[in-house]
Write a protein that binds this DNA or RNA. Sequence first.
DNA 1: CGAGAGTTTTCGGCATGCCGAAACCTTAGC
DNA 2: GCTAAGGTTTCGGCATGCCGAAAACTCTCG
Lengths: 217, 217
Amino acid sequence: MPANSPAIEDYLKTVYAHTEWQPDAITPKVLADRLGVAPSSVTEMVKKMAAAGLVSHVPYGAVRLTDAGLSRALAVVRRHRLIETWLVHEMGYAWDEVHDEAEVLEHAISDRLLEAIDVRLGRPARDPHGDAIPAADGTLVSEPWVLLGDATAGHSGAVIRISDRDPAVLRLLHECGIGPGTVVTVTDASPEAVTVEAHGTAQRLPAEAALAIWVAA
Amino acid sequence: MPANSPAIEDYLKTVYAHTEWQPDAITPKVLADRLGVAPSSVTEMVKKMAAAGLVSHVPYGAVRLTDAGLSRALAVVRRHRLIETWLVHEMGYAWDEVHDEAEVLEHAISDRLLEAIDVRLGRPARDPHGDAIPAADGTLVSEPWVLLGDATAGHSGAVIRISDRDPAVLRLLHECGIGPGTVVTVTDASPEAVTVEAHGTAQRLPAEAALAIWVAA
DNA sequence: CGAGAGTTTTCGGCATGCCGAAACCTTAGC
DNA sequence: GCTAAGGTTTCGGCATGCCGAAAACTCTCG
Ligand SMILES: [Mn+2]
Ligand SMILES: [Mn+2]
Ligand SMILES: [Mn+2]
Ligand SMILES: [Mn+2]
């Protein structure tokens, strides 16, 4: 009946985020891993969310957002990314330090305060990781992209976005001088690692880093 | 065992706030009214907090903060008041609009973000209502004061602080042009209302407003 | 002193969200 | 096709925080 709570907002956000990186719908197991809860907790919560019309789910099947769930998820994603942007632009945070703070604040800020932050920042279209910030009406900017982990040798383009899921990856890329906007050229690609040229120097990126990066197609 | 949670933080803050306006310790009934919960809920929570060493309480008696509880309460009050100040100084809120937002954010902000806000604001000593903001070490500024509701005719002084508990009182005072710093002179005092001269005009303040105002002694 | 009013506590219960163990499906490999 | 592994669900249980009803207590007034 409630249909909204910090817990449900995090479930919605996680289901949505998965679709940004993977074409197939998320399974309960992956949801549980991402959220750091037991699979049995996911079963229960998904059942409640399905009853509330936020996701569709058949027993033993994957979890998909309904239209209502997508719109709720986009609202949470908007909060998360605007807060991250604010922390970096105004509060002196580095891009690899904002995720945990935003993870909590996204559930606590009012619509009014969010609007005030959005205005102060000039209604940004992307957060510090290059993640697109949904507009208040759910609109999203988009550009053609390819996962750096899937790119072939010779591919060249600007980094569009970097997953903020793993702080270790963010720190590694920070040390390499790679961030949103950096132009990279793939010189060698294998399943274990991708070697790119960036700022005129060669960088070897392990698969977990290469799969966290979108490059312009 | 937890000894901290949004609920416990609100209980601590409420017990502390009572001591700023009333000399006697708070009773469970008043605590319940202020928090908007049932008396039985207070009994349970106070028992937990006493077990955690945050308050002292004998059955059927009043509730008092221990040293540990006071220090925890001051930390929450500091958060609340710094957030209110930030909302007014940087986010375009009026002083009668900040309380509810701060009531939620005080439980969500990290120490690091609080420090960044404090620095940005220049480490303010008082919030928009004139409430003293405890320093990170628990230090508090203080000046001699008297409740306007207890003042006698002829008393004159600057308004030091105004309780932010009742938004209606805040709006009334806003319309009267009375805020922290306003110099008022009591021209008539009765149990029902106090008449003061402020900015050269007479204002009749009902008891609930007069009892929400500290004036310099 | 003895009531009665008001306050406080006790008790059973509910809602949310989480867990582990065990049972139950699905599916890939043989 | 069968089986075993792995994913999913069910089930009982726990922690937090809240409630209302009823019992217990305190205190004031007559
Ligand atoms: Mn979150
Ligand atoms: Mn991000
Ligand atoms: Mn609060
Ligand atoms: Mn205040």
